[in-house]
Design a protein around this nucleic acid. Structure first.
Length: 417
RNA sequence: GUGCCCAUAGCUCAGCUGGUAGAGCGCUGGAUUGUGGUUCCAGUGGCCGUGGGUUCAAAUCCCACUGGGCACCCCA
């Protein structure tokens, strides 16, 4: 038997309805914040990601689906920011007035070991605001993403923000951290001892309870920000407070892409287990130049893990967003079967969700109507077609009443039915 | 990529220290030829994840592989 490949999966009903819900909510919110959609290719030149994501990140060194296309190295996109910036440069979108605000929804690919909330093909809903380095933009982006999650029906998520400094101040902090770790590291877990030299920032993200007291004593990047970064972060916090966003400053938040500078943020949800990050984002003021732009194009963006968002929503409210069948038409007899085709078409044009029984056996049709969860069954036989009335039966109560065609359409014109 | 756990019918699972499989739900039909749900009866269902090994005999024990879960790593 041929099965979906490891780390990929089929989105089946009723889950697909939740996906559609999430996507339509996101599009509404993006519209309200004046974002427009961009659709970039699913694969790009490998170099784009090597430079845009960071040549020595895990994503680039071991997680990319890279293939040779007759001498050209191509890669399935592991994330979308690099592609959006590439398109921004290629099409000179910097020439457009105002901040360039773009959103995307689509699949990304990373060859990781699959587990709950982590798949090799996964979907991200993301956005980029390019052309502004204002802290007000950061705050608006964070407000917008909060709005998306809230309007999707998610609650109980935590908002973490941090500043990781700039190419000016971050290296100095890393150096200070390294020196401090020479003394502290021997008392930490084995992983942290390894990280102390390999990737000191990761020590800050350690989750081992035993290590926490020692980690608390390590220097905070927020004390090492240069004046410009410090002021920027202060304003981000101020604007977030103005907007009543319940954020927490997490100086130990060191996740994200290599190109992140200054503001970074992450939203976490408890129902997700170890992969508890439902979205991540940050500012990348040097990325466009890194990708060859002649003009300075500071930007900030985020991406929501759509799979994880759907997972959280389904855990909180199983069975939500169903769109129940409204009418099951049960024809009785060959003449009625033919008569019902036109009737069904008319109802469907009026926006009613209709299933037309494919055969003329009443009992069988009623059974099916019940199993499909139809709100109403419409019984159509010789009595009904002759008199021009139909018997509408409410399935839950068993009540039945006779309606002519006009009354029937009028009844279902109201969207609540 | 590493470690631990798991894999039996469409689904949820039982199957004792080895003797070649069961339940509930579902699905199909009937009791009920113009009325579903409840009930009753019958039927449908499985290369026991795949391949190898031990054995007279393997769903059961051993190994490998594949897939899944959790943790690490990392990230969305």
């Amino acid at each position: 038997m041929i099965r979906a490949v490891k780390g990929t999966r089929d989105i089946l009903p009723p889950s697909s309805a939740v996906w559609n819900h999430v996507e339509s909510v996101a599009r509404e919110v993006f519209r309200a914040y004046n974002y427009d959609e961009i659709r970039t290719p699913v694969f790009e030149e490998t170099q784009l990601f090597a430079r845009g994501v960071g040549a020595d990140t895990d994503i680039v060194t071991k997680e990319m689906y890279t293939f040779d296309d007759r001498g050209e190295s191509l890669t399935l996109r592991p994330e979308n920011t690099a592609s959006v910036i590439r398109a921004y440069i290629e099409h000179r979108l910097d020439q457009l007035p105002g901040v360039c605000k773009l959103y995307y929804i689509g699949p990304m690919f990373r060859r990781e070991r699959p587990q709950k909330g982590r798949y090799r093909q996964f979907s991200q809903i993301g956005a980029e605001a390019i052309g502004s380095d204002s802290p007000a933009t950061d705050a608006e982006v964070i407000e917008m993403v909060t709005e998306i999650l809230t309007r999707c029906g998610l609650s109980g998520f935590e908002i973490y923000v941090n500043s990781v400094g700039c190419p000016d101040c971050r290296p100095k902090f890393v150096e200070a951290l390294k020196q401090r770790l020479v003394d502290v590291a021997p008392g930490l877990c084995a992983d942290c001892q390894r990280r102390a030299t390999a990737n000191p920032l990761r020590v800050l993200d350690c989750k081992i309870p035993h290590d926490q007291p020692a980690i608390e004593t390590l220097p905070s990047i927020l004390d090492h920000l240069c004046p410009a970064c410090s002021s920027h972060f202060e304003q981000v916090r101020m604007f977030l407070t103005d907007r009543a966003i319940p954020f927490q400053v997490k100086p130990r938040l060191v996740r994200g892409l290599d190109s992140y500078m200054r503001t970074t943020f992450e939203f976490a949800h408890g129902a997700l287990g170890a992969q508890n990050s439902v979205l991540g984002g940050g500012r990348y003021d040097g990325l466009a130049e890194e990708l060859g732009s002649k003009v300075h194009a500071p930007g900030i963006g985020f991406s929501i893990g759509e799979d994880r968002l759907v997972l959280s929503l389904e855990e909180a409210a199983p069975g939500a967003h169903r769109d129940p069948l409204q009418i099951y038409i049960a024809p009785m007899g060959g003449a009625a079967l033919r008569h019902c085709a036109g009737l069904a078409h008319e109802l469907r044009r009026a926006g009613v969700r209709v299933e037309l029984g494919p055969s003329a056996k009443l009992k069988r049709n009623m059974e099916t109507a019940n199993k499909l969860g139809a709100r109403y069954a419409l019984l159509v036989g010789d009595n009904e077609t002759g008199a021009g009335v139909y018997a509408l039966k409410e399935m839950s109560s068993g009540e039945q009443r006779n309606l002519d065609r006009a009354q029937l359409l009028e009844t279902f014109r109201s969207p609540s039915l």
